[in-house]
Amino acid sequence: MSTDITHPAVYASLAGKSVFITGGGSGIGESLVRHFCAQKSRVTFVDIAEEASQKLVADIAAAGDPAPLFIPCDLRNVDDLRDAVDRAVAENGPINVLCNNAGSDDRHQTEDVTVAYWDDRMAVNLRHQFFAAQAVRPHMKAQGGGSIINFGSITWMVGDPDCPAYVTAKAAVYGMTRALARELGPERIRVNCMVPGWVMTERQVRLWLNEAGERQIEERQCLPDRLQPSDIARMALFLAADDSRMCTSQQFIVDGGWV
Rank of each mutant, 00 (worst) to 15 (best):
M194I: 09
E187D: 14
P164H: 04
R203G: 10
L207N: 12
L180E: 05
A172I: 03
M194F: 09
Y174R: 07
K170T: 00
R178P: 01
L180I: 08
N210M: 14
V195L: 08
C193S: 11
M200K: 11
P186A: 03
G185R: 01
T168W: 05
G197E: 06
P164L: 02
I189A: 07
L180T: 03
G175F: 12
L209C: 09
P164Y: 05
M194P: 06
Y174G: 01
P186Y: 02
C193V: 10
G197N: 07
V199M: 00
R203I: 09
M200D: 15
L209K: 15
L184N: 02
I189R: 07
M194V: 05
A172N: 01
C163M: 15
V199Y: 00
V167D: 01
R203E: 14
E187Q: 13
R206G: 14
M200G: 10
T177A: 00
E187P: 05
T201L: 05
L207R: 15
K170H: 00
E202H: 14
T177I: 01
V173T: 05
P164W: 03
G185P: 00
T201M: 07
E202K: 15
G197Q: 05
N192G: 09
V205D: 12
R188V: 07
P196D: 05
V205W: 07
